[in-house]
Design a protein around this nucleic acid. Structure first.
Lengths: 172, 172
DNA sequence: CAGGCTGATGTCAGTTGCTGCCATCACTAT
DNA sequence: ATAGTGATGGCAGCAACTGACATCAGCCTG
């Protein structure tokens, strides 16, 4: 990430990353499937956290409530790693390739949440809809949080965005 | 697309595509920025159609109504090109790289819809939320339509999914 | 302790996607 | 007829990856 920040993602070769880490290029590709994947190393932990949050909601919770708990948990985690998250996001935003990878991570996240909802007895397409909508709220809240360089904490922005969503779908 | 269908995306080289088209590899890259981009050639037309649908809704329409008109229009178009759409989707689903590209096209679509909503006086974050939610419904409805290899027409599936969404967000 | 197994790393060659540079060629405007 | 323009081809080269093989450290077993 240091290298990506200094010279930009495109201008950084895998050989340079490997050298900085004291490794060979070949070894780099044994740890990461991709040049892109380095930036998404922790994403599986975030996904596990969010899945856990959905799973541990009470049975009585609605699908949207369960998803709300997941993005709330994600908000807390990212708020803790605030500076890191912002720096990383700046790098991703600067590269189309990285934005693609980010989107597929979010899609995989939505899919995992939908699975979890289904295990709670939620039928399709409700499970997928709730999960996808939750991820949409997550994306927008996160973007707002990154922009307004300080101000509110992420979990609060998440809650506000979710409320706005309810208003939007209620009106339409 | 013929080649991708025959041998799979990964096993098809750009040289082969170019040869089949009677071109040089170099010329191929002058027409398409990417090996992936070939499969998304018509996507700008779909985006223009959806943007137009949002723009031509009456002032009184809510954001979600406007977005609903856009995915309805997309549904009609894709229903016309039913076989093509399904064949194309099978190829995309089989390749992670292509799925990434598809996701960024959808993200760009959401962004364009949000822009159009903003031009209609809708404020952020409502504009982005409505757009993203609309794309989520689009994704899910399309996936269902592709699965249930025949049955209902896409616009109908779109409407049903949107209704389910309203129910989901109303309960939560 | 010797020998063999395993897992992580290095080395090297090769393929493929993609780009820059220059030449060619058809077409068109004057 | 000439010059300018846009599309194409040819070629060289870089960088991301991959497969095959060698090496080496640690560790288990007899």
């Amino acid at each position: 990430m240091a290298l990506y920040g200094e010279r930009g993602y495109d201008n950084t070769t895998v050989a340079e990353i490997a050298a900085r880490a004291g490794l060979t290029e070949r070894t780099f590709f044994r740890h990461f499937t991709d040049k892109r994947e380095v930036l998404f190393w922790g994403s599986s932990r975030l996904q596990a956290l969010m899945v856990e949050a959905v799973a541990s909601e009470p049975e009585s919770a609605s699908p949207l409530d369960a998803v709300a708990a997941a993005i709330e948990a994600a908000g807390v985690l990212l708020q803790e790693r605030r500076d890191f998250a912002r720096q990383r996001q700046a790098i991703i935003a600067a590269s189309p390739e990285l934005r693609e990878r980010e989107l597929i991570k979010l899609a995989s996240l939505a899919s995992a949440l939908a699975d979890t909802l289904r295990q709670r007895g939620i039928e399709e397409p409700v499970a997928s809809l709730a999960a996808e909508v939750g991820i949409a709220v997550f994306k927008i809240a996160f973007a707002r949080w990154v922009e307004e360089s300080n101000q509110k904490a992420l979990p609060e922005v998440m809650r506000e965005s979710l409320d706005e969503l309810r208003a939007v779908t209620a009106l339409g």
